[in-house]
Design a protein around this nucleic acid. Sequence first.
DNA 1: TGTTAGCACTCCCTCGAATCGAGTGCTAAT
DNA 2: ATTAGCACTCGATTCGAGGGAGTGCTAACA
Lengths: 351, 351
Amino acid sequence: MATYTASGENQVSERALHFLKALIERYIRDGQPVGSRTLAKETGLDLSPATVRNVMADLEEMGLVVSPHTSAGRVPTVSGYRLFIDSLLTVKPLEEQEVEAMRRRLENLGDASRLVESASVVLSGVTHMAGVVMLPRHERNVFRQIEFLPLSGHRVVAILVTSDGEVHNRIINSERGYSPAQLEEAANFLNAMFTGQDMGEVRKRLLADLKTTHEHMDQIMMRAVEMAQRVVEAAETTDDCFIAGQTNLMEFNELASMERLKQLFEAFTKKSEILHLLDRCIEAEGVQIFVGEESGYQLLDDCSLVTAPYRIDDQIIGVLGVIGPTRMDYPRVIPIVDVTARLLGAALKKQ
Amino acid sequence: MATYTASGENQVSERALHFLKALIERYIRDGQPVGSRTLAKETGLDLSPATVRNVMADLEEMGLVVSPHTSAGRVPTVSGYRLFIDSLLTVKPLEEQEVEAMRRRLENLGDASRLVESASVVLSGVTHMAGVVMLPRHERNVFRQIEFLPLSGHRVVAILVTSDGEVHNRIINSERGYSPAQLEEAANFLNAMFTGQDMGEVRKRLLADLKTTHEHMDQIMMRAVEMAQRVVEAAETTDDCFIAGQTNLMEFNELASMERLKQLFEAFTKKSEILHLLDRCIEAEGVQIFVGEESGYQLLDDCSLVTAPYRIDDQIIGVLGVIGPTRMDYPRVIPIVDVTARLLGAALKKQ
DNA sequence: TGTTAGCACTCCCTCGAATCGAGTGCTAAT
DNA sequence: ATTAGCACTCGATTCGAGGGAGTGCTAACA
């Protein structure tokens, strides 16, 4: 009968959890499988190794730890980490001065993308792992101004400035040339129409305009709309994520396989997968963690990802986080990611 | 007497060179130290291993090859490669269709920096090593237009467009605000002054203007000059080099040391050292090669660098190249780098 | 019933010895 | 000048022994 399964009671005893916590903390510290003797000393309780062994056997039965081979100590499994993270761990709050140092590194940096890039550098620097930051969604952004400038030949450069100080541009090869006056007129037309509007809105209206041919719109305006659409599109697809400190991952011997590392780095340069993953975290309330395979991406099987959304005025506008080996110092990394998200939000608001 | 040195005649015999060539070609093919038996078969000449051994001993005495240990075959030294490259190697010209494929990947890419980036991707893709391209010098570039747009607060974004279609921008925090009209006036002033001028010239004049206070210039114009100076400076320092396919280097087991690879990758992200190195190649007539330590950068001790300058109308405007293990297929890589330089020059000219 | 001591056992790791094979340098003969 | 022959060197592989860390089980104990 189902009640009599080998695993017995699913209630993990209070004490077993205490042991699990100690075991994981120890394992995080020095990366070696933890044996009964060691663990006996580690916990405050004054118990013999034999007793500890019994408890460890229980933990193993529940799938929270495994031993790599018969006569090694135990190592946490993904479920073990999960339980640890969800209900066992005690975070190590950051020193005020650490926070201050980070804040200082996120000040006075001009435009948003420079700020966001620094955030990724800060994250990787403080954690010694890889830091990643997704750029603020441009939807929240406001259309400020568009300009068209002629280049040599029939080429035109379209420049779009948005309220966050970002400048986007795209070169467009038109089949025929336009005079500076025509281009200026086109820009005026678009500026009158869109200045001050939300970028998401702008995008929608441009797309709609492209489809329905307006009889009251002349050739040039049609073309202007098309060019604007192209640069808005460019604004949306440009470098939407910064990753820093990738090389830090080469320091961990649990990730030492060249082959896997290579694939990981390639994913970092392509970015698309990482972006999808981050996207899934954007709705989370606070810090979110994927341990090992939990992410669903094979590339990250040996890694964990700790993320937090960042906001301006309680509006979530992006996500940042840290990628490192499964055996990372969660109690330390979690507050770091959390604080960085707050600092970045604050810095973005200021401008 | 000097004439009786141990190394004897410095004249390397014709035959010895033939052997060296064969040895290096073989070593490039399969990365194993080449023994006398193998080499005897390799060369067309019908000689016994014993004879070959004598010749190899000579080559070793001259420092062109070494054996990693007593009973291994021989491996080329840096001087060996050098001699090979300078006077032995027979390049393998590219198939017309290969060239065509590369050309196609460098077409219709809008602005210069996108083009240059593609060039680095192409290089790395074709050679399976790391491709690097230094951006065209902006000095040759022509000032096209400058604009100042107000942002929130007292911030202003300065936008500079140059003739190569590059758009540079910089956000400037001014201590006091300016009206749109003032900004427009300032831009008009600068455009009238600089449009169509060589960027190098522009930079010089801006610097001069900054130093000498003109009494006929009002506050705003002074400030405009300062802002212009800042954006020109930004234009000069932005991302001056693209590197692609770094991860390819992880495939070579001669570079398998994590530690060294890490340092190498860090140099790639900092870029400055790589840039210095490339800078040294810019004056070379054609393809230039640094084997191993020849580069002078410890990081590249196990690597070789093959570079070529690229030009528009015989004007050298940049350098590109490939970084890979010392044991790389020079006869193939050399024409690839050469051709890519030509193709990039041509593509840049077209726009 | 929970805890503990004792014990046999398993498995990894390291080390040294033995062996193999590739390749060398030298010498003497062609 | 070339070559065959030979002793030799050295890395790589294999094997087995010994040690150590840690386990699971059992029986005794509180």
